[in-house]
């Protein structure tokens, strides 16, 4: 395959970036998108040009480290992570635009690498169940109804990649946050902190500069783990009832 790549290049957080065009040939449709970028970097290095910086780690779709805006779609045209996107999803001769996640809460570090530590700070503010090591009761002392356990699991599959924010026209992080609220709120162990959790996380989210949610639904459509939109409703429900949970 022969491709034209238009890639965002930006030397560092404070530098001004711009799109650069590269031609690449001899790409196999079996390669993953990131392997195609690896190959571009090998060629750039051989020519003495600075390779393109991009994040990735597990390359099996679970760590959440990779994430690119590919021709205007978060993680590209398939419902999966960038690392699990393969070149067979493209056609010979295509022009592909590659940009970093765009959100002021996710500042660009270099080229296609962004800083998603805002997500960590949201979790820090309440995305946990306070259970000190060694203080846990016997696991079977609290049964969890299977439907609740299943819903908690579905929400807990979030990989924190940030595609929801990237795809959202408002750059909102509500799907990420809603997934955590739903995961912990569905479980009996999560009830004690249910009210304070949602309030603290929402306050942090808004303070980090994410946009507000207008329920457009692009987040859920872009989510590689197919987290459904109802976690946002659940978050709002918990927020509305947070006073009750705090009593």
């Amino acid at each position: 395959m022969r491709l034209t790549l238009k890639i965002w290049r930006q030397a560092n957080a404070s530098a001004k970036g711009s799109m650069h065009t590269y031609e690449i040939d001899g790409i196999s449709p079996e390669e993953s998108f990131l392997e195609m970028l690896d190959e571009l970097n090998e060629q750039l290095t051989a020519k003495g040009e600075d390779p393109v910086a991009f994040d990735s780690d597990c390359r099996e779709g679970i760590c959440g480290m990779c994430g690119l805006m590919i021709s205007g779609q978060a993680h590209g045209p398939e419902v999966t992570t960038t690392c699990q996107l393969h070149m067979r999803s493209f056609n010979d001769g295509d022009t592909i635009t590659v940009e970093p996640w765009r959100a002021d809460a996710f500042p660009v570090v270099k080229d296609l690498v962004v800083d998603r530590s805002a997500f960590d700070r949201i979790i820090q503010s309440g995305g946990f169940i306070s259970a000190n090591t060694g203080s846990a009761p016997e696991a079977h002392s609290t049964p969890v109804p299977k439907p609740k356990a299943d819903r908690a699991f579905d929400a807990a599959t979030c990989i924190g990649c940030g595609a929801c924010v990237a795809a959202c026209p408002n750059a909102s992080g509500m799907l990420f946050m809603g997934a955590k609220i739903t995961h912990l709120g569905e479980l009996p162990q999560g009830q004690a902190e249910r009210g304070s959790r949602v309030r603290a996380m929402v306050a942090t989210h808004d303070g980090e500069g994410f946009g507000g949610c207008t329920n457009i639904g692009e987040c859920a459509a872009a989510c590689p783990k197919e987290i459904p939109l109802d976690v946002i409703s659940q978050l709002n429900n918990d927020l509305r009832n947070s006073g009750k949970y705090l009593r």
Binding site: S71, G72, T97, E99, I216, E218, A221
Partner: peptide, 10 residues
Amino acid sequence: YAVHKMAQAS
């Protein structure tokens, strides 16, 4: 974004 496609927005 230089290019942005909506996936499903009504």
